[in-house]
Design a protein around this nucleic acid. Structure first.
Lengths: 128, 128
DNA sequence: TATTAACTACGAAACTTTTCGTAATCAAGA
DNA sequence: TCTTGATTACGAAAAGTTTCGTAGTTAATA
């Protein structure tokens, strides 16, 4: 499949995408309320972002209703890949192993998650 | 120890830090040459960045000689942590396990590295 | 000492991102 | 229909990032 180049979202855009991924399609009002749980941000600010994101193709919106309903237009996994690759290059000199170990060390990953990762490792080693 | 808040470097700053971490203390000239292997960038552009980074405390410099010698003022690991934490929050909803699995899946990690990670997992599970 | 090459310092333009005020539009209720 | 509240559209200011031109400084050397 031809890989379409993904626009790298800015920090603010990513916050909004996050909300849309988590909550599904939402109005500006809803997104703004969720954003405001963390930090104060004006309604029109959020609106403007979402309009820009719409132009960029990061989100799409349904305009049937008076208050438009926005949803993410790009896949969370794809963006994760873009950002992860970039971080890998710019901060970890391309060493995925280092990145992984840092990630595991920094966060308190649960036993369950550790097991999941181990299983995944097994699959990887078998598969290749 | 009181954790000093690290300034999050910009993309361009990170590229320069990367070079300093890898090559050790260097002059602007050297850094600029390395940058130019990837993309054209004017000498004074690089100089300016390094001056700004000096003001921000991201690098320090020795001015004894005519051409100043710059070195990273912050630890690579600390920045990795800052950036990784941020990515974790903004793109992976805080799930380190997801991040790790994506990282392993995307990159072709060598058998050796996989083993390193497995060992690290073991240590983690024992230790806790 | 006068010239030149290698640097640094400074300032500002160009571009991107973030933030919000104001105006226009619409839907519902008085 | 008139008003009001909710919403979108637009434009532009503010702030941050990137880029580089020009001028000044220094050290070596002709």
């Amino acid at each position: 499949m031809a890989k379409k180049q993904l626009p790298k979202p800015t920090d603010a855009e990513l916050e909004i995408l996050q909300i849309l991924w988590q909550n599904g399609a939402s109005t500006v009002k809803t997104v703004n309320e969720i954003l405001n749980e963390k930090k104060e941000v004006g309604y029109t600010t959020t609106l403007k972002f979402m309009q820009i994101m719409n132009e960029k193709g990061l989100v799409q919106r349904n305009e049937d209703e008076r208050s438009h309903i926005y949803s993410a237009a790009i896949n969370q996994n794809d963006i994760q890949k873009v950002l992860l690759d970039k971080l890998l290059e710019t901060a970890f000199s391309g060493s995925a192993a280092n990145l992984v170990m840092q990630a595991l060390g920094n966060s308190n990953t649960s036993k369950d998650d550790l097991k999941k990762i181990r299983d995944y490792l097994n699959k990887l080693e078998k598969g290749e």
